[in-house]
Amino acid sequence: MMTSSAPTTESIVGMTPGARMRRRVFGHYGLMFGLAVLILIIAAAIFAPLLTSHDPYAQSLFMRMKPPFWMNGTNPDHILGTDHLGRDYLARLLYGARISLMIGLLTALVSGVIGTTLGVAAGYFGGKVDLAVTFLINVRLAMPVVLVALAVVALFGGSLQVVILVLGFLLWDRFAVVMRSSVMQIRDLEYVNAARAIGCSTTRILLSEIMPNVVNNLIVIMTLEMAHAILLEAALSFLGLGVQPPMPSWGLMISEGKEMLLFQPWMITIPGVALFMLVLAINLMGDGLRDVTAPEAKG
């Protein structure tokens, strides 16, 4: 039978691997869009004090419930309006981005360390270790995440550290599953056997032969779990059992806006759209990175 080759394969023949990779990255609209939005949000979070002169915690009795700039009765000093306590909504949104990003990053780190350790151990050693890890993954999947997270936060109190730790300890399953199967695929390849044959220690093999070859998958899962953690934190805070007031968490802002749903729907629109854009950007970046570097991590 004829094999019809894709149009791109012919044109990229002869390019250096670096050029080919650059072409794939820059040609991926989802990845570029996600990256651009994410950089924008990170910049907004870092430079929040420069972008607004308002204190996200400063209340004002006279400036309550001012609508944002596209509505009537707006105050030029507060372009995104003020909330029910008269706090500047833009300032809360910008400082809220810090919380979401921090939660996402730190949770993904905690869960990444747990999940990767378990997954790599299971994939590399197999046998009883693998059985034990698989069992743990099953147990973890059977625990209702939202319920357990809510319960623990309720008992320990809702500080940022508690939320990060709880989510970190609950969201490691995907790391473990993907790392386990990626390591299994490469643990008996020639170059790993060669390292074993010349007498490398297990630690050395894991760090210098195995890890560099699964790190693509790890980064992809990391981005997707960041998005997952950000959404969960928002949900917990929305339910009143995550980050506690007066911190400017986007989930909390939506929860507070819920009370004014009838008259001031913009109060949930603004943090909702921000949350949606952030998670969308991270997801698009994660999907894009997977398409570009590690197509086998799908699913």
């Binding site: 004829m2 019809s4 894709a6 149009p7 791109t8 012919e10």
Partner: peptide, 11 residues
């Protein structure tokens, strides 16, 4: 004829 990207493959 099979259209492929730029040209046509006259199979």
């Amino acid at each position: 004829d099979i259209p492929i990207g730029a040209g046509t493959l006259h199979a």
